[in-house]
């Protein structure tokens, strides 16, 4: 009698079920459970077995012929017939379950906003100056130079002017990025985090945050700005003078 081997069959302890995970993606493998024995079949007889299959904790390995006779690998005599079992493909048998995420650790270290000298020349959008300088300019300034501007005055008689072109008066100029006003000549370090800083510090994007070179900032409500005009500027000065 000649053997007509078609595949290899392995027996594994049923409690080693999880080890099949390593060969789950190999094609053609089928598995079935019979009491405390886990059967694995579909392993090609020809060619070199996959290393992952060789690493499986098999208790017995058989060669299976076309009549379902099981031969020990080192014997020409069959020792049993393969039972009719409920075979399943490994992907069907071994369902994937996503691991439960552990609670992520909280990052306790806070990022300190830092500014560094800018590498490129930037267009300025705002000017911080004194109320006196602003009033003196507006007294005789052309209307067309005032119309594109808005301004907000502080109790300290400082004025933040926004718009373009800015008036030619002394003061500190600022660059506008995502409603953040950075001193001209500076940018965030690292560069490109303006939108992150804005999202954290000014999520509603309603107000303006004005930074100094040290990275500290002050919030200026958008409602504090009024349209620049000679009467508005004169009235502001009068109100400040009268307390």
């Amino acid at each position: 009698m000649t053997r007509n081997i078609k595949e290899i069959v392995m027996q594994l302890p049923a409690d080693k079920y999880a080890t099949l995970g390593a060969v789950r993606c190999l094609p053609g493998l089928l598995a079935a459970v019979d009491d405390d024995v886990l059967w694995l079949r579909g392993i090609p007889f020809t060619g070199k077995p996959d290393p992952e299959i060789r690493r499986l904790p098999a208790t017995h390995t058989f060669l299976l012929d076309e009549t379902n006779l099981l031969f020990p690998t080192d014997s020409l005599t069959p020792v049993a017939t393969l039972k009719s079992l409920h075979w399943k493909s490994l992907p069907e048998l071994l369902q994937i379950v996503l691991p439960v995420s552990a609670m992520p650790a909280e990052i306790t270290a806070k990022y300190q906003v830092q500014l560094a000298p800018a590498e490129k020349q930037q267009t300025t959008h705002a000017l911080l100056t004194t109320l006196t300088a602003w009033c003196n300019y507006a007294e005789t300034a052309p209307l067309i130079r005032l119309q594109p501007l808005t301004f907000a005055a502080s109790d300290k008689n400082e004025v933040l002017i926004m718009g373009q072109p800015l008036p030619p008066i002394p003061g500190k100029e600022y660059v506008l990025q995502h409603k953040l006003l950075l001193p001209a000549g500076y940018e965030f370090n690292p560069a490109g985090i303006a939108f992150l800083v804005a999202a954290k510090l000014n999520p509603q994007q309603e107000d303006y945050l004005i930074f100094d070179a040290t990275g500290t900032w002050e919030c200026i409500p958008a409602t504090a700005f009024v349209k620049a005009g000679r009467s508005a500027i004169r009235l502001t000065k009068r109100e400040r003078e009268n307390g």
Binding site: E139, T140, A141, L143, G229, R230, S231, R234, L235
Partner: peptide
């Protein structure tokens, strides 16, 4: 006169 008083607020100088 009232109109003038308001209007001069927007006059330069």
């Amino acid at each position: 006169q009232e109109y003038y008083d308001n209007d001069i607020q927007d006059m330069p100088g």
